[in-house]
Design a protein around this nucleic acid. Structure first.
Lengths: 247, 247
DNA sequence: TCACTTTCTTACATTTCGTCACAATCGAGA
DNA sequence: TCTCGATTGTGACGAAATGTAAGAAAGTGA
């Protein structure tokens, strides 16, 4: 799951969603999924659709899943990405309120909702962990609408790139050179931008030597400080050209 | 809490946040607050600030509370409004991640988080209800970022007005003629618009005879169909002038 | 290697919204 | 009732994002 926080941090650094509460050492929820059946999906396979009766809760093992809605006007709004380790469908509602589809070959575990709730009744640790995840999700959604509502196109892109980098850090992967896991149009639909604007913003960042690109997917975050400044809304867009001059 | 859903509805009408799950007849959570101490606050009094240790969960009895963040750039982002019946601070995190302040004389009940969690351990109905509220909150936050990200200024205003109307309906109040509970600048900070744009959009709606205003707060939703069309993003803004001509 | 598709980039015209400056309105308290 | 101050409304202007349309680059498969 991608999250962001470009707003003022409180004194201690309890804001980044990954830190809302310390992960308990015993992961009871993970245990529920440990022996769950695994499904292997190809790219672009649907997991479920909006309006389906919610029967299962999923956990992504590998690959990537897109959580999205199709709006009245036909546009697609990506609500979230689910990457390895993320859960899908934990909220309590009788029907799924969004579509889910893989964007890459994906291995996924599923546990029936009923089973999970039974576990929750027996083990309060499970309840705590679900609360924690839901709380984090609220925080993520709020952070996302701050990103959407308050940041310029370039700021949103910066936020997105930093979220990917932070995610990689958490998983001890390279957070400077990595592959973008999604296409430009997915980024656009996630950040409420047009593909063209995404493209333009990336070019701008490249020109300012804040990032560099090899091909379409391989990216290098060359100036993380500048990205953070952009993601914090501290710089207006023409300040990007300041970085450019400095470089 | 104000919510919206301008995206495509699934076949059944399970999307509006108020309908995520049917309200259980027994409201265990309400019971927890029934005998909780009541505080009377004046307008513009803070309830708590971002970064405070979360000690209590609140329920608004009367009045109105603003949930907001102050961003790095000094802007205020209103995350939510809490009106009578709404809970504040239910998410599980050791610190409050936002500020809360009254905007009107407000009566509020508070229960300590510890007490609430103890209740939750003993009574699974409480757990269910909290899950439900959190799920609704996720849905609300997501709906809100669709509103912010995808709708024009007028569409956002329309969504906001409809949310107020629906809220009044739920409480069996007048959903056509009512008082705006907040100032223009609060609407602006909630919808990520400037005060001027809020003002202009309201004027536009008034000119198109979709709404009418008496003074600054009293509003009448004259053409709800048009509002819904705008909130659904079905109309581009110059279509407002079509309604104007028709009227 | 070549043809072909998908994905991405760029340029230009247009639109929307924010900013600034100032006028008008409301309503609380004298 | 009147006055004052906070709030709201309006117009002009510029900056930023979008849509359109055309074209380039990367990937795909024979």
């Amino acid at each position: 799951m991608l999250t962001s926080a470009h707003y003022a941090e409180p004194a201690s650094n309890w804001t980044s969603n990954s830190r809302i509460a310390p992960r308990p050492h015993r992961c009871a929820l993970d245990d529920c999924f440990a022996q769950a059946p695994v499904r292997q999906l190809k790219a672009k396979e649907p997991l479920f659709a909006e309006g389906d009766t919610k029967s299962n809760v999923y956990k992504v093992d590998s690959g990537a899943v897109l959580i999205y809605k199709i709006l009245n006007d036909g546009f697609r709004q990506i609500v979230n990405f689910a990457f390895p380790g993320d859960y899908v469908g934990l909220e309590m509602s009788p029907l799924y309120s969004y579509d889910a589809q893989t964007i890459a070959p994906t291995r996924i575990r599923s546990v029936s909702s009923a089973t999970l709730w039974r576990q929750a009744r027996e083990d309060t640790v499970v309840v705590d962990e679900i609360f924690e995840i839901l709380s984090r999700e609220i925080s993520a959604a709020r952070g996302h609408f701050l990103t959407i509502g308050r940041l310029s196109a370039t700021g949103r892109i910066a936020t997105f790139l930093l979220a990917l980098a932070e995610r990689n850090e958490r998983k001890s992967l390279d957070s400077v050179n990595f592959q973008l896991p999604v296409r430009r149009s997915d980024i656009a639909d996630f950040l409420c931008l047009s593909v063209e604007t995404v493209s333009r913003s990336l070019t701008e960042l490249k020109t300012a030597r804040i990032i560099s690109l090899r091909g379409w997917r391989q990216i290098k975050l060359a100036n993380r400080e500048a990205l953070e400044s952009l993601a914090n809304g501290e710089t207006t867009d023409n300040c990007v050209s300041q970085w450019r001059k400095a470089a």
